[in-house]
């Protein structure tokens, strides 16, 4: 069993200390925590981002964190957004109140992200058609879905670990 990484985003976000019962449980699943970090890197900073830039991914991630009331995680993604050197129009996507301001492609990315992150059960075939109509390729629809799906996972692992810690 490998050791937990000192740079593990989930563990840092959950505020898990160097000792204690939650840390011990995590050490037993160090392989899963390392794989979780690898999926973060693949969803946020893939070497081939396709039509969804690193900046857009970071902005969408900050937005989803905010939709889930996790400001600390949003701050992490705002740092990635800055590192990506994205322009203002992309950075604006991180604000849940921003709707794309008439840019059809960005508006479609945002509408889909808002729906899938908070009400996935309500998605219909029309939501995928709306992305296609906005000119988003099938491969980018999959990339967008994976990003959203990864974030749903990461946000929930962090929230669960915080509850574990609070009741330890």
């Amino acid at each position: 069993m490998s050791d937990l990484s000192p740079n593990d985003i989930v563990i840092a976000q959950a505020g898990i200390g160097a000792n204690g019962s939650v840390r011990e449980a995590l050490e037993g699943r160090a392989d899963i925590m390392a794989m979780t970090q690898a999926t973060h890197d693949a969803a946020l900073k893939p070497s081939d981002p396709g039509g969804l830039s690193h900046g857009e991914r970071a902005a969408l991630a900050a937005r989803v964190a905010r939709l889930n009331e996790d400001e600390a995680l949003a701050a992490h993604y705002m740092t990635l957004l800055e590192e990506a050197g994205a322009d203002e129009a992309v950075a604006a996507m991180a604000d849940p109140a921003h709707d794309g301001e008439g840019d059809a492609r960005r508006a479609a990315l945002l509408a889909y992200t808002d729906l899938v992150s908070t009400h996935p059960r309500d998605t219909t075939p029309e939501d995928i058609e709306a992305l296609k109509s906005a000119g988003i390729s099938d491969a980018d629809i999959v990339r967008l879905s994976e990003l959203n799906a990864f974030l749903a996972y990461q946000i929930r692992v962090i929230a669960g670990l915080k509850l574990m810690k609070a009741t330890a």
Binding site: V116, P120, I128, V142, A149, F150, A152, Y153, R156
Partner: peptide, 11 residues
Amino acid sequence: FGWANRLMHTL
């Protein structure tokens, strides 16, 4: 499954 559902149910 927050992850898996968001792929299987949307795609």
